[in-house]
Write a protein that binds this DNA or RNA. Structure first.
Length: 671
DNA sequence: AATCCATGCAGCGGT
DNA sequence: CCGCTGCATGGATTC
């Protein structure tokens, strides 16, 4: 707490530069609606320098397994070089983890002890402060003051423990060794905050189960960090509380939705998608407009979109600092649930020659990026490791419900946790399920309508069903919705599961989009992980039918190639759901390789792609299949005239660069 | 200097 | 002759 006090000034100074410096009106509701979208915490004037804390999550990317292949005499040229580039597994993992930190949720490893409230976890139960939430279920009117007045959490947890709550993660050690002023204790002494909290509990008792609340943990350092950022003032605490509560609400909805989806999933481990971790950085995309002046500022664009891709913003400095941001967001919405979320235009665009170009780093990772796209109205926080306060740790709850782990607010030090708990009845669950379905239905209808209106715009417009929530269109008429990707399909895109073992050959039966959608329904969780993108050159869209792929990204995210003949690779067109059987291969080139995607002619023609347009390749982390989307940067009817270069080589290059500091550095330079 | 990658073009096979 | 395949070249960019 000393540090706390000492850093207060600093915190205040930085206040306006961080994600928490948000537009109060847009971020926090005057009151807490029952099911609010998570607030967009962008700031029109801020330029976040927040560097997300990277917390590696079992990153088993396809890339990590490649380096083991032994180079053959012929396979050559590329192999050794390949190894060099690829670096050690550790490096790869670290990079991967970094990339995932803000955007995606990798297949979670067995929950670390600290997450499950093991003895070594320095955490406290929220109940320490508030008492057990099951009081809610009895509709008791709490006296907030009574809650906070308790000096010894155990005093009012023990009795409750005797009851049926018995918080699983609450061990005596946790309770005994923690001070009261941690976790939700930051609310102590503030009856207004307590009131807010209890009111919220009452309002959401149908949606937040006892188990859920019980699993919410707050780490002391997290709270401290938040305090530093938000200030130790009453207002600051209030904001923190609201953020936490809203996040909890969001997560609950997401969890419900995901659960439904998972029930239909062919993947037994779908629940991993739920391993959402709240990433406060989601709020810190304030610099988005910085790099994309022609597009609406997030604040105005996603007024009601709770979870913005963290750091999609193009703040070069930030990018340079944080390799882990930028999702290949979808600027162009326009599709149905299936396509909309990946209307792959990377979210961030730089404008060159009047043509918007994706700012490379921006979509560096869908995984991270996936970061993030919230699905209104149930936008969920990116599952990524949440680290709003890079120097101090995470602020918000990090649900680990896959393993029955508690949601956690943790920090790097793994200190104190706070758990919340309440009891929800089956009836309440049913009700929220019903509401969920209802909302889905509405969402679906809205999306379809929007699609009709915007498809003709060639995806230049981000239809984003999220717009329905009040987002506005940009001055240019484009409703840029980063979240459109996740918005329509699912927010769990942020909770992507890495294509651990991407098949070398993926062939998928042709299936109509409508059929698929019908089959999978809106509940389908599409976990798309951004792999790479490429601004198409003349040679890419010519009649050669091949597209040169950026080497680094190809090696990192596509299957390792042992032979120059490459491998067949099925690419499902996100826009049409058509599966293109392409070939992924490489050419020995000098002492390196050139990676190609062949048999792209038809795809290019069908999508009307021209020089300057770009393709984005994702992997469906659930199915392991690859998905491709061609994105046109021209307005319909606008053809590239001679002399109008779509992009400088520099731009083009940067567009295909992502996920590594080097690339970020490049971008930084170019910006 | 090293590397990437856009593209030129030689070689080959099919018509 | 034409189109495709695959390699080589060289400009651009980064290290």
């Amino acid at each position: 707490m000393e540090a706390h006090a000492g850093e207060k000034d600093l915190w205040l100074k930085r206040d306006h530069e961080n994600f928490l410096d948000v537009n109060e009106a847009s971020v926090f509701y005057g009151d807490f609606p029952p099911l609010p979208d998570f607030p967009c915490m962008s700031s029109s004037s801020s330029s976040s320098s927040v560097t997300p804390v990277v917390k590696p999550i079992a990153a088993t990317s396809s890339s990590s397994s490649r380096a083991s292949s032994s180079p053959s005499a012929e396979e050559d040229t590329g192999q050794r070089d390949f190894q060099q580039i690829r670096g050690s597994d550790d490096q790869v993992k670290a990079e991967h983890a970094a990339l995932c930190s803000t955007a995606s949720m990798e297949i979670p490893p067995p929950p670390p002890p600290e997450y499950v409230g093991a003895g070594n976890v320095d955490c406290i139960d929220v109940m320490e402060t508030f008492g057990y939430m099951d009081l809610l279920d009895s509709n008791d009117i709490w006296d907030p003051s009574s809650v906070f007045q308790c000096e010894n959490p155990q005093e009012f947890t023990e009795d409750q423990q005797a009851a049926d709550m018995a918080p699983p993660q609450l061990d005596q050690q946790m309770l005994s060794e923690e001070e009261n002023d941690d976790g939700f204790n930051f609310l102590q002494g503030n009856s207004e905050l307590a009131t807010i909290f209890f009111e919220w509990l009452k309002q959401n008792k149908d949606y937040i189960s006892a188990k859920d609340m019980r699993n919410i943990k707050l780490k002391r350092s997290t709270i401290e960090s938040a305090s530093k950022r938000l200030g130790s003032t009453k207002e600051g605490k209030k904001q923190l509380l609201k953020l936490i509560l809203e996040w909890v609400e969001q997560f609950q909805l997401q969890k419900i939705r995901t659960t439904e989806s998972c029930q239909q999933s062919t993947f037994p481990s779908q629940e991993t998608a739920q391993n959402l971790e709240f990433n406060p950085n989601s709020f810190s995309h304030s610099n988005m407009s910085y790099i994309n002046p022609p597009y609406p500022h997030p604040t105005t664009c996603f007024p009601s979109t709770p979870w913005m891709p963290p750091q999609v913003a193009g703040d070069a400095a930030m990018m340079a600092q944080s390799p882990a941001f930028s999702p290949p967001m979808d600027c162009y919405g326009g599709g149905d649930s299936y396509t909309n979320y990946v209307h792959a235009a990377p979210l961030n665009y730089q404008v060159a020659n009047g043509i918007p170009y994706p700012a490379s780093a921006e979509y560096s990772s869908m995984e991270q990026a996936q970061p993030w796209v919230p699905m209104a109205p149930f936008a969920m926080p990116p599952p990524s490791q949440f680290s709003p306060f890079p120097d101090n740790g995470c602020l918000f709850p990090q649900p680990h419900n896959v393993y029955g782990n508690p949601y956690m607010l943790f920090d790097k030090n793994g200190e104190r946790l706070v758990k919340l708990g309440s009891l929800a009845t089956k009836e309440a669950r049913k009700k929220r399920m019903a509401r969920q379905r209802s909302l889905y239905s509405y969402h679906n209808r809205r999306n379809s309508n929007l699609n009709q209106n915007h498809d003709q715009l060639n995806d230049q417009h981000v239809v984003a069903d999220d717009c329905e929530n009040g987002s506005q269109e940009s001055p240019t008429g484009d409703c840029m919705y980063w979240s459109s990707i996740a918005s329509s399909a699912n927010s769990s895109m942020m909770a992507t599961v890495p294509p651990v073992d991407v098949p070398q050959q993926l062939n998928y039966p042709r299936q109509g989009a409508s059929d698929r959608r019908q089959q999978q329904g809106w509940k389908t969780e599409k976990n798309l992980k951004f792999l790479l993108q490429k601004v198409l050159k003349q040679s890419d869209v010519g009649n050669l039918g091949r597209i040169v792929l950026p080497k680094k990204e190809a090696e990192s995210h596509l299957p390792e190639l042992d032979s120059r003949d490459g491998i067949p690779i099925a690419m499902e067109d996100i826009g049409t759901s058509r599966v293109w059987n392409m070939r992924y291969r490489f050419w020995p080139n000098n002492k390196s390789r050139m990676y190609l995607l062949e048999n792209t002619g038809e795809f290019v023609r069908m999508n009307g792609l021209q020089e300057g347009d770009f393709i984005v390749i994702y992997s469906d982390t659930k199915c392991g299949k690859y998905m491709i989307r061609g994105v046109k940067v021209r307005q319909p009817g606008t053809k590239l005239e001679g002399g109008k270069k779509p992009a400088t080589r520099k731009n083009a290059r940067s567009l295909s660069i992502s996920r590594n500091s080097t690339s970020l550095a490049r971008i930084k330079q170019s910006v």
